[in-house]
Design a binder for these strands. Structure first.
Lengths: 361, 361
DNA sequence: AAGTGCCAGTAAACCAATTTAGTGAGATAC
DNA sequence: GTATCTCACTAAATTGGTTTACTGGCACTT
């Protein structure tokens, strides 16, 4: 008998602090504590003060699980990325996390590792944890599980991809601006032979970068042999392979633009091995402006896309649907890009014969 | 009347799938569904089959929050790191996450950003989400909130630091082995003047690396002027500053070892700027063997500490306390380190006069 | 044929919060 | 002086699972 009623009588010492402990301590009801915590305005000022004092004294904080269960809000957002070891993503995560945490959300990171099964398992994990929204920062809308996210009406945000349902937003990046600046920068230096190493073209973002490049080239009346448009895969190794491919060609470009910085760093590496100097023999431009770009040799001229902006836009796009009244609309943001000139770009070889001559060491 | 009982009668269409939906569908009791899901062995085989079939057909999965609430187990582990943009950590996260996910845990990442207030706020977040264990991969045991973790008896694991309570394990890294290999590698090449750039010495790990270096130097009878032991902070910029400091000295070392790879990459950068060639003019060794080490110019000779091993050890150390019967013991693992020789180390200048001569371009 | 296990099923307690319906006290209206 | 209206408070239902105590049916003992 006594043991049966134990739960309400005496605390099994190691128990977590309860909302009813606070209520008891502040000598008010449980509901009043709840209302105080949730800042319902009707609570009497003096009572609220007493409650806050008790909360502070007991060092209490509410149980997130219980809260999530009853309110139906997990306060968790999912963040789907390609691969955490690609330096672009940690910078993105940092931005997304800080703004999420500021707003009392926790984030769950899923790395799709560029393959569909891992992506499916990521999405399942997110579903099981009842995420309130998902920022998809990796490619691939395919897959039945993603449909499940949509069918559960979970808000999502994609980059550059078209939303397949309501409560799904798209973030548009203005690749044109930055890439045009890059091409014009090269052209102004005197370059006429410019190659471009693409990313994995399944990704819409990579198509858009390539198209922006081709468009900018056309604008200034330059043509591009199709051998000068090799495909990388946004990894360092892929950049190395693509550049090796270019080096095997009869006619070399005097400048190479890359779909991202990791590719460009791979390019730098291959050029250094081949004994070609950057920028004296060949100029290189990256894309993203990852932290590392400033520290490679030579420091990389690159198109900057602010990860902080991207993260913030992604969060706000989600918030509109998660918290707001906006239940059906889909929103679009334009993320700007700008060229950052460092030391991997210079005059093409031959134009300043006294200072730079093509020498293979 | 009718509306009052609605909840149990008809579903408000958009409601989440319930365990009782499954029970109804499989024509068994709720308890049986629960037992089946949790693989209680006493469940009748045919019944279990029916339940699994229903689960699959309805595409049901249990509500994690409700489960966590009643079972008292959140299946969330905390991972405290210094800074996600330091490439060491993404690699660590990758390892820790993959093993955690394999075991049905989710991880919550907290970046302490090298300052105590952020660390406190991270710990508070972890507490609020009811983490079952925390892997502390950054320095600083101080702070009342960390005591709170300990006082709540939440299992933790530290690297190189002494546990302040039971249910707290320590991971020991065998710095000696790898660093000795590095020093002996340099000595074998002919180096006698070796500098060492430390990390932030508040961290026990950094002290240990430094001590391992000093010990190895002593072993082979070399002395070190104290100007050759400048402090970095494990960032690239810190490495640059420390190397600039060394370059201002009257007598230069012929080799520099670094407390981590980011420091070494900063060193390479400063040396390149100063017109010193690596390894012809000066040899450089890093520590960690981050992915990037292979791709800098020249590829970095470095001491490898497997992030995967570290992550696995951390997870297992936590698991013992979280799941196991081991309620009070503290465990210790030895994580091995080995030298990886690449191209940033070579003979000291002057020893092979025909091939390498000290030239400042 | 009665007694004893052994399982599966039922119903209810429980976890820690939110939220709704209902209550009671004080203020205002008539 | 009583009726009515606020408004803040309390009590209880609810969320979706797990778990326990209890019940009932079937098989095996003796």
């Amino acid at each position: 008998m006594a043991t049966k009623k134990r739960t309400r009588q005496q605390k099994p010492e190691n128990k977590r602090l309860d909302i009813r402990d606070v209520a008891r301590h502040a000598k008010v009801s449980i509901a009043t504590v709840s209302r105080t915590i949730n800042r319902v305005p009707s609570v009497d000022k003096d009572l609220a003060k007493r409650v806050w004092k008790s909360i502070a004294e007991l060092n209490y904080f509410p149980n997130t699980q219980a809260r999530a269960l009853v309110s139906g809000r997990s306060r968790i957002l999912g963040l789907l990325i390609s691969e955490i070891t690609n330096p672009f993503f940690p910078e993105l995560i940092q931005g997304f996390e800080s703004i999420a945490v500021e707003n009392n959300y926790e984030i769950l990171i899923g790395s799709t590792n560029y393959d569909v099964p891992s992506m499916e398992s990521c999405i399942r994990r997110l579903l099981e944890r009842n995420v309130e929204g998902v920022a998809v920062m990796t490619f691939g809308i395919e897959g039945p599980l993603l449909n499940e996210l949509a069918s559960r009406n979970i808000p999502m945000v994609f980059v550059d991809e078209a939303p397949p349902s309501p409560r799904v937003s798209t973030l548009l990046v203005d690749y044109r601006q930055g890439i045009r600046e890059g091409v014009q920068h090269l052209a102004a230096l005197g370059h006429r032979k410019i190659a471009f190493i693409t990313g994995p073209l399944q990704q819409r973002s990579c198509q858009l970068r390539r198209d922006a490049f081709l468009h900018s080239l056309e604008e200034i009346g330059l043509k591009l042999p199709k051998e000068w448009l090799p495909a990388g895969d946004h990894t360092l190794e892929g950049g190395m392979r693509a550049m090796e491919e270019i080096l095997r060609l009869k006619e070399l470009p005097t400048a190479v633009m890359c779909s991202n910085d990791m590719t460009a760093i791979g390019v730098l590496r291959v050029l250094a091995r081949a004994g070609l100097r950057v920028p004296e023999d060949i100029s290189v431009i990256g894309f993203d402006d990852i932290h590392l770009a400033e520290f490679v040799n030579p420091p990389l001229t690159t198109v900057r896309m602010s990860r902080a902006d991207l993260a913030r836009a992604a969060f706000e796009a989600l918030r509109i649907h998660v918290e707001g009244t906006e239940k059906t609309a889909k929103q679009i943001w334009p993320i700007p890009t700008r060229l950052t000139v460092r030391q991997s770009t210079g005059f093409p070889p031959g134009t300043m014969p006294k200072l730079a001559s093509r020498t293979k060491a």
